[in-house]
Simulated assay, not measured.
Amino acid sequence: MTGAVRREQAEFSMDYVNLPEPPVTTAAGGGDEGNHPAPGTKLLRLVGVSFGLLCLLQAAVNVSLRLTLCEFYTVFQQRYIQQGWVRFRSSVYYISDARNTWQQSRRYCLRQGADLVIINTKEEQDFTRQFHRFTWLGLYYESKTKKWIWVDRTPLNESFWGPGEPNGFEGKIENCVEIRFFEMDNSWNDIPCGDQNYWICEKEVAP
């Protein structure tokens, strides 16, 4: 009797030892993988945070540069305006109170970091006429190319010649241009570059 009990206990013990271990499951079901982030998750988070910080830094730099440029242009414009320059759109202009040849007038403008005025639009043409003076423009006739060009070497596309101009009056070599008929929309006149005239300097100060 005792031997039978012992055999039963031994069989029971062996059966218990040989039972397989139950799998470890999670609430999501699927082993213990849910306890660890997917491969690359930490790297993606780091990249995202770094990109966000770079965006913030770029925005701060842009604001700082904009404020600096605005301050620069304000000081720049005030300095020129205090010296008798006039602001019109994206340029400042200086209208002389003395007369000189075309070449000497241009040299004066260049010393100021400017050049003789270049007229690109009808609005700018109207602006330059309002001073009611015979003034040099930055337009001249280049004998080599036989074309009228501006001092920045751009060709003459839109012109405002007075009636019958340019004409080389009385056979003169008239290779420079002035505003003469300032009461008219078309006010330009060609005259010899060695004549004496007032002049207009132009300098761009903003886009």
Rank of each mutant, 00 (worst) to 15 (best):
M1Y: 07
T2Y: 06
A4L: 07
V5C: 08
V5F: 15
V5Y: 05
V5A: 11
V5K: 10
R7N: 09
E8F: 08
Q9E: 14
E11Q: 11
E11C: 01
M14A: 11
M14W: 07
V17T: 13
N18D: 05
L19F: 11
P20A: 03
E21I: 15
P22Q: 13
A27I: 11
A28I: 12
A28H: 06
G29Y: 10
E33C: 05
E33W: 11
E33D: 02
G34I: 13
N35M: 12
H36F: 12
P37L: 15
P37M: 08
G40N: 15
T41F: 09
T41S: 06
T41E: 15
T41W: 10
K42N: 07
K42Q: 12
L43H: 07
L44F: 04
L46K: 14
F51D: 04
F51T: 01
G52S: 06
L53T: 14
L54M: 15
C55F: 15
L56D: 01
V61S: 05
V61H: 08
V61T: 05
S64V: 03
L65P: 04
R66C: 03
L67E: 14
L69H: 07
E71D: 14
T74A: 09
T74K: 13
T74H: 10
V75D: 08
Y80I: 06
I81F: 13
Q82P: 00
R87N: 02
F88M: 09
F88T: 06
F88V: 09
R89F: 14
R89E: 12
Y94C: 01
Y94N: 02
Y94I: 01
S96R: 01
A98G: 02
N100I: 01
T101K: 12
T101F: 10
T101I: 15
W102M: 05
W102L: 03
Q104N: 12
Q104W: 09
R107V: 03
A114M: 04
A114D: 10
D115C: 02
D115T: 07
V117H: 00
V117E: 02
I119G: 01
I119L: 09
K122T: 12
D126M: 11
F127R: 02
T128I: 14
R129N: 07
Q130E: 02
H132D: 09
H132P: 03
R133H: 09
W136E: 00
W136M: 04
L137M: 06
G138D: 02
L139R: 08
Y141L: 12
K144C: 05
K144G: 06
T145P: 01
K146T: 05
K146N: 04
K146V: 09
K147P: 00
W148A: 02
I149E: 03
W150N: 00
R153T: 13
R153D: 12
T154A: 11
L156F: 04
G162V: 01
P166I: 12
N167I: 08
G171L: 02
K172W: 05
E174D: 07
E178S: 05
F181E: 07
F182E: 01
D185F: 06
N186I: 01
W188M: 04
N189I: 15
C201D: 03
